[in-house]
């Protein structure tokens, strides 16, 4: 029979600090182990393929429709000033600076983040992660570093893909409404895109990708309480991931805005 003692559980504020400490420790472990051999190259490639392939259909559809809708909704306002010829550059800048990174990351947070959270969560509760530990394998390296790296690499690629598909949607709309040729459309939109836009977009996408992978892995790797814990891990991966992406978006807009003025 077990003896019961009164052990005081930490308060809400203490728990928040304990969690924050855990998260930073988890991130620290990623930076420490991610760059040290042995490398899990095969698993990294598999994860890159999975993350990219898993999100491709939804991202293509969303990007294309966003391009069409954004162009259609922007036209009346520009038409008031007789500036519909600015549509290609407006769409190009909007897609590259904000819409593509944000849309791609939000979709990936939903699809990839939840999937990573559920997969690792399920591996934790079925003792598969413990089984890796006891077979003298480092599960953190195999499961966490590969997934975080894969989403950090893949999300920027998907972001530029979304921007391109969105531009095709916009081109379709502009061609049908104004009869603009593809060459004129791309010339006009690409002329207005600067090196800073591309750099800022890439950096944002890298940060968003890292966030999605890290949140999904942290939630899954540390899940508990059986199947309920798996559901919780998947859910938290999406909710926390999206919340952090919005905060990062606001901060990055302010930050890169400093270089534009």
């Amino acid at each position: 029979m077990e003896i019961k003692d009164e052990v005081k559980s930490p308060g809400k504020i203490s728990r928040t600090f304990i969690t924050l400490y855990d998260v930073f420790q988890f991130m620290g472990r990623f930076f420490k182990e991610g760059f040290l051999p042995p490398y899990e190259g095969k698993e990294l490639m598999k994860q890159c393929y999975d993350i990219g392939y898993r999100s491709l259909a939804l991202i293509s559809l969303t990007g294309f429709i966003t391009g069409i809708v954004f162009t259609k909704q922007s036209r009346p306002s520009l038409a008031e000033f007789g500036a519909t010829s600015w549509l290609p550059s407006l769409v190009g800048i909007a897609l590259l600076r904000t819409l593509a990174p944000l849309l791609t990351s939000l979709i990936a947070a939903g699809k990839v983040g939840s999937s990573i959270g559920a997969e690792l969560g399920s591996m934790r509760v079925t003792e598969q992660i413990d089984a890796m530990e006891v077979s003298a394998t480092n599960p953190f390296k195999f499961l966490v570093t590969t997934r975080v790296l894969a989403s950090t690499i893949t999300i920027p690629i998907l972001t530029f893909y979304t921007a391109m598909v969105g531009m095709l949607g916009a081109l379709l709309n502009v061609s049908l409404s104004e009869g603009t040729s593809a060459k004129a459309f791309f010339q006009s939109s690409l002329e207005s895109i600067t090196f800073l836009d591309i750099t800022a977009s890439t950096i944002k996408a890298v940060i968003f990708g890292f966030t999605i992978g890290m949140v999904g892995c942290y939630q899954g790797y540390n899940s508990s309480k059986g199947t309920e814990g798996v559901g919780k891990a998947a859910n938290s991966a999406v909710v926390i991931g999206m919340f952090l992406i919005f905060i990062e978006e606001v901060v990055s807009v302010q930050f890169f805005g400093l270089f534009r003025t």
Binding site: M123, T126, E127, Q128, D130, A131, E133, V134, A136, T137
Partner: peptide, 19 residues
């Protein structure tokens, strides 16, 4: 510890096979 675990095998109650 990893080196020691090479010498200690652990068979889990639910097998814990990588599914």
């Amino acid at each position: 510890l990893l080196a020691l675990r090479l010498k200690v095998g652990f068979s889990f109650q639910n097998s814990a096979l990588y599914d």
